[in-house]
Nucleic acid binder design. Structure first.
Length: 698
DNA sequence: TCATAGACTTAGAAGCCCAGCT
DNA sequence: AGCTGGGCTTCTAAGTCTATGA
């Protein structure tokens, strides 16, 4: 039912509504709190009103959201848990996987310098320590229990964006038809715009307005007085210059390219790694974001604003006291150097568009990220154990006489059934207007008591994270439907659907249901359980390897659809599909030709019965078989690609699917892990690849 | 209790790069 | 040898959720 059409931008006609009523809502809530005793909504929830409206009909049976059919209800099952505080005991008791104890003191010096010489003899110096680090199995070691994230941290600080290089004089900029030479600051900002000329961003009103406002701030007073209208600016010369530059870069000789590559590699080796607790770890983003024009997604009110250049004076460095502190570039200072081992970042700065903090952190393959990731899936597995109880509970709560509890229960049902995000409140005017579950507004749903042959259908249509459209029509249980009707009463399109609920209330409730439970755990849980279920359903051990992989991708796709992970159809999609089809057609022709030959060979053999013709038949038979296989492979590829047109598998693979499910599947069906995880993914999921056996159950 | 700051995960797009083709 | 399509990597925005402090 899902309409895949993307819509990254809706008209904002509802905005005014929203603004108006948001205030009203808040007032209403406040009023109630202050304690006038009751509000109009509270009044409605007397028992009698309730019973009148809703005859009991709960038979206790329902098909659980998604496909999960676990019958286990116990939540206190003391299986392996990933929480640091519990690790010690559980490790000792339960985990057979952790192969050796971690002895802090002894290891202090060992691993910084590679010590395992045997295997590394023939490896070059640079690769030696890397090889060694790749093999570090942090998942077999103890975890800290005191909330500290590390004991030792040393790094060289971030790499700054290269300074601005003024344009050569031959590059012309015209204002109102007249040649103008800009001073460096204004010129730099102008180049940001000029580089984007082909992008549709630059045609948008908001973008242009924001850009122009910020650009003018960089101008000299003389420039400022002259340049008053963006429409009179001619950036074409600059634009061409940059195009020529990138063309020239492409045309560079092999040697030049090689040199650049080597330079990059050197920077990576110097700045791309840090030492955390005796291990060399890869840093995720060691380069500071260069200045440029802010590109928000969807209808962002701040698009086009100038993202200013970050200087050493903006940077806070985090490292251990007893480490070699990173040096700021000559003649500069850090904003601060601190030693906070309760956080994982190495450096941070405050960004000027939203005023939020940006961080330099480690790569997903690092221990610190991996542990957290592992823990995330363990929490989701704990949810699996008690999800039935929680589902029964929220179903009960649909009948509550308290409005806030009903809203909470219906919202939770959506989060569970549809894998919606929690939906924090956002500051208006600061970001694009997007919503999640708790922040849904009346205008985002439509109710259909009957639609086609289905009853109680809810239609969702809203922009979610990244302004990706969520569109779905889904039949719900009658009680949910009735509740929604109630929530909608006396509301305007811009009002909150769940006016008595926010993410903080919801998460507090979830925390009471299960330790560590928050809204997003449902997404992780439902994604992973769906993958496991789909894999079970779709895989067939008799299938060929490509067919099995198609099954895997389909299972992955089911999850991506559940989580609404969309992508813009690749620009070259149609063409590449056509190319593939041509290949298939050709292969088909080849096949029928080969079959004909086989037939002829058979006839020949029948007539002569000699050895030579028998061999010929065999040869032809083999050929037919080979071509059939090739054709099948192509057809599978085409199917896979077609089905994937607007669906992005990467996000779920990377963030929602317990990698142990995939690893176990590979082992069970004899698929090499490389077929489903590329190098980066294998690095990130090294822990899972190492520990999951074929019988792993999520 | 509430708003805000801070830390960290999740997200799609853009750009790069290289295998496989002509 | 050059071209090109597509996968991989990088980038950074946009979420979630917790901590903090008034």
């Amino acid at each position: 039912n899902r309409d895949n059409e993307r819509l990254k931008h809706t008209d904002s006609s509802s905005e005014k509504h929203r603004e108006k009523h948001k205030d009203k809502d808040k007032e209403r809530r406040r009023e109630e709190k202050v304690g006038t005793g009751f509000s109009y909504t509270a009044l409605k929830f007397t028992e009698s009103v309730f019973i009148d409206n809703e005859p009991e009909e709960d038979n206790g049976l329902y098909s659980s959201p998604q496909h999960n059919k676990t019958s286990r209800r116990e939540c206190d099952d003391e299986e392996f848990d990933c929480k640091p505080k519990k690790v010690k005991t559980e490790h000792d008791k339960k985990s057979k996987k952790r192969k050796h104890e971690y002895e802090e003191e002894d290891e202090e010096e060992e691993d910084i310098k590679p010590k395992k010489k045997k295997k590394d003899k023939n490896v070059t110096e640079g690769k030696k320590s890397k090889k060694d680090e790749e093999k570090w199995k942090w998942w077999e070691e103890e975890r800290s229990t005191d909330g500290s994230k590390w004991r030792f941290l040393e790094h060289k600080g971030p790499v700054f964006a290269p300074p601005y290089e003024p344009l050569p004089d031959k590059v012309k900029f015209y204002y109102d038809g007249k040649l103008m030479k800009l001073a460096a600051p204004a010129e730099e900002v102008a180049t940001f715009f000029a580089k984007m000329l082909d992008h549709e961003y630059t045609t948008k009103d908001v973008f242009r307005k924001n850009f122009f406002k910020d650009w003018r701030k960089e101008m000299t007073s003389e420039e400022k007085s002259k340049i008053t209208d963006l429409n009179k600016c001619n950036f074409a010369g600059m634009n061409e210059y940059f195009k020529a530059q990138s063309e020239a870069r492409k045309q560079m000789s092999k040697e030049e390219k090689q040199k650049i590559k080597e330079d990059n590699e050197r920077i990576l080796q110097e700045y791309g790694f840090c030492i955390m607790d005796n291990h060399k770890e890869r840093i995720g983003n060691f380069r500071i974001e260069p200045p440029g024009l802010f590109r928000g997604r969807g209808d962002h009110p701040k698009m086009g604003m100038l993202k200013r250049r970050i200087r050493p004076e903006d940077i806070i460095i985090n490292c251990s006291k007893d480490s070699k502190h990173p040096k700021p570039p000559p003649g500069t200072k850090w904003k601060e150097v601190r030693h906070d081992n309760k956080v994982t970042w190495l450096a941070s700065w405050t960004e000027n568009i939203q005023g939020s903090i940006k961080y330099i952190m480690l790569n997903p393959s690092s221990r610190i990220k991996g542990e957290k990731d592992w823990q995330k899936y363990e929490t989701a597995r704990r949810l699996k154990k008690c999800v039935d109880r929680i589902r029964n509970q929220y179903r009960e709560d649909w009948k509550s006489k308290e409005m806030r509890i009903r809203q909470r229960a219906v919202a939770l049902y959506f989060i569970d059934k549809l894998a919606l995000r929690a939906g924090n409140e956002k500051e208006e005017g600061e970001t694009a207007d997007t919503v999640g579950c708790c922040s849904l507004r009346v205008e985002h749903i439509n109710l259909y008591p009957k639609l086609d042959d289905q009853e109680y259908v809810v239609e969702f249509d809203f922009l979610g994270k990244d302004s990706i459209r969520y569109y779905n029509r889904i039949p719900v249980e009658k009680r949910v439907f009735k509740n929604l009707q109630l929530f909608l009463e006396n509301k305007q399109p811009g009002d909150d659907l769940f006016d008595r609920l926010n993410t903080s209330i919801l998460n507090k409730h979830l925390q009471e249901l299960m330790d560590g439970l928050t809204a997003k755990v449902f997404r992780t849980y439902n994604a992973s359980i769906t993958l496991q279920q789909q894999l079970k359903e779709l895989s067939c051990s008799d299938d060929s390897v490509p067919a099995k992989i198609l099954s895997y991708n389909r299972a992955n796709r089911a999850v991506a659809i559940l989580c609404n992970h969309q992508r813009a159809p690749p620009k070259t999609f149609e063409k590449s599909m056509q190319n593939l089809q041509t290949k298939i057609d050709e292969k088909q022709k080849q096949l029928s030709a080969a079959r004909k030959q086989l037939k002829a060979a058979k006839a020949e053999h029948k007539a002569s019965h000699d050895d030579k013709s028998k061999k010929a038949v065999e040869v032809k038979r083999k050929a037919v078989q080979r071509i059939e296989e090739q054709l099948m492979k192509l057809q599978v590829q085409a199917t896979d690609r077609e089905e994937n047109k607007q669906i992005a598998l990467g996000t779920s693979k990377l963030n929602y699917l317990d990698p142990r499910i995939s690893v176990a599947w590979c082992k069970k069906f004899g698929i090499p892990i490389e077929k489903i995880y590329n190098k980066t993914q294998r690095e990130k999921f090294a822990w899972a690849i190492d520990m999951a056996e074929k019988d792993f159950e999520f």
